[in-house]
């Protein structure tokens, strides 16, 4: 899924990804980490689920992980920009948290539990100002395909 070359790229959900500051930089997944106990979360949180610390901090998460479980959606859900059939997964990131996301650029038949994956971006439509919305997804890690 190629990202449009022109126009500004804006994250669909800025709470979940951080766009690179420089042209060649990589986008990062964003989560929360606890300065008191070190627990890491995929979602943005105010309070630590592990130690109840208040004042949890925004942090970037590992861009790689493995498929914890998955399915192939074969009936088109209303409102989705992905066209069925497409694969979705719960990905366990290398630094712990599990995130749900689509799997793109990967043959549906090749998806399995334990598949090593890496974060990528895909188009998620356009916003009211004509900017390209981008959202995170995962794809099979390239070394896995070789």
């Amino acid at each position: 899924m190629a990202v449009a070359e022109t126009g500004r790229r804006v994250p669909l959900n800025p709470d979940m990804i951080e766009m690179p500051a420089s042209a060649g930089g990589l986008p990062r997944l964003v989560g929360s980490c606890c300065p008191a106990c070190g627990a890491r979360f995929a979602a943005r949180r105010a309070i630590c689920l592990q130690c109840a610390h208040r004042g949890i901090e925004r942090c970037t998460l590992s861009p790689t992980g493995t498929v914890w479980t998955f399915t192939v959606v074969r009936q088109q859900p209303p409102g989705s920009i992905l066209q069925a059939p497409y694969a979705i997964a719960q990905v366990q990131l290398d630094d712990g948290p599990i995130v749900a996301a689509p799997l793109v650029d990967t043959a549906i038949d090749a998806v399995r539990v334990g598949l090593p994956v890496e974060m990528t971006l895909c188009d998620a439509g356009r916003d009211a100002d004509g900017n390209t919305l981008v959202a995170h997804a995962f794809r099979a890690r390239r070394e896995e395909e070789q």
């Binding site: 409102g79 689509p102 959202a135």
Partner: peptide, 14 residues
């Protein structure tokens, strides 16, 4: 219906 969250747009709300 009509939700515009990441999960809805990216086909995860199934």
């Amino acid at each position: 219906a009509g939700a515009t969250s990441y999960a809805s747009v990216m086909g995860l709300n199934v």
